[in-house]
Design a protein around this nucleic acid. Structure first.
Lengths: 185, 185
DNA sequence: CTGATATGTCACATATTTGAGACTTTTTTA
DNA sequence: TAAAAAAGTCTCAAATATGTGACATATCAG
């Protein structure tokens, strides 16, 4: 069993399931450019694949977020780096986020997953809370709104990437500019 | 055949398919609080239901956008009203948008649908283009970015609505504040 | 109350998706 | 190049999803 192939399947599955959670395995195989039979040699059941996708996303995102936080001690710079890290994670970050919000898919989550969730998304909220305290009441923008806007700006970044009309660094600088202005920073 | 029931099915389907495009009919029936058998009396085939959802979303959104444009002649005010209208349409707007972006679902779209698409999303782009011309080059924010950010802010608004920690008017004013600051207006 | 309309229940045929066995071909690597 | 590993092909059984007929209930208007 090639680890490389396994990884390719997971990447393909993240892409496909992000667009259509109940898409047939055939679609994942297509995307990974292989037979469904091969795919099934790596992942016996559908559940297993989905679970591996979650694990992968959680791993990648939590590491990226943790690293981003370490770059600086300044909350504003931390926020900036968290945004860049989230954009780097791309669909991995947004799919993970989506799964959390989803109605009727609790069976995809266990306690460990929820702990991991905090390791990723919790960091953003924490930094936002710090920043909000410092500007003590000047802004009518709530922490709640800042949190959802963070994800909204990420969504915009991912879509901009898909259109390929902007490059990574353009997107990142626009995203950070819009976000910081949007939360009155 | 009660028109009311038919409408309820469509609303349920929009909700369910927005979360999971390939979700089984059973899930739609559950959401609409009825039997699958009843659902099938209204919509013979799955395709038919999905198609009705698209039509419904296109109808509601294009009307809302058209009305929003008529409120004012001032581009900035037009943009503000378009954003509010989009928030009012909620998932109808974002699901429609998602379908357009989706890979491998061209079969859901015909020429008429694409014309309708322009009637909705085209208006936003048009107004953004006007505004961008006026600020002639002062801002490094591109029309491309403004367009995707518009949708990003909408995503944030919808999520804020789901959490129920903010009310409609709070969300709208935050959304407009963040968007206009974000595009340097 | 009564008939009409809408919905629910059960049953069933068909279609699609899933998962795996057996064997062949291709690719890797020693 | 030859053995081992990985991937493809063909096949098929089981599970799940889809669509409909027949009949029982429920709901509602007159």
């Amino acid at each position: 069993m090639k680890e490389e192939t396994k990884q390719a399947i997971i990447e393909a599955a993240i892409f496909v399931f992000n667009e259509d959670l109940s898409a047939p395995m055939e679609k994942v195989a297509e995307r990974a450019d292989m037979t469904r039979r091969t795919l099934h040699r790596y992942f016996g059941e559908r559940r297993e694949l989905l679970s591996s996708c979650l694990q992968e996303m959680q791993k990648v995102c939590s590491i990226a977020m943790a690293n981003a936080l370490e770059i600086s001690d300044n909350p504003k710079e931390q926020l900036e780096n968290l945004l860049y890290a989230a954009i780097d994670c791309g669909v991995k970050y947004s799919f993970l986020h989506k799964i959390q919000q989803l109605h009727g898919y609790q069976h995809l989550q266990n306690e460990t997953d929820n702990a991991r969730y905090d390791q990723t998304f919790g960091k953003v909220r924490m930094v936002l809370q710090n920043l909000h305290k410092k500007t003590d009441g000047v802004s009518f923008i709530t922490v709640e709104w800042m949190t959802v806007l963070f994800f909204g700006v990420l969504t915009a970044s991912i879509e901009a990437l898909n259109h390929k009309k902007m490059n990574f660094s353009e997107i990142k600088s626009s995203a950070w500019y819009s976000f910081k202005m949007g939360i009155n920073l």
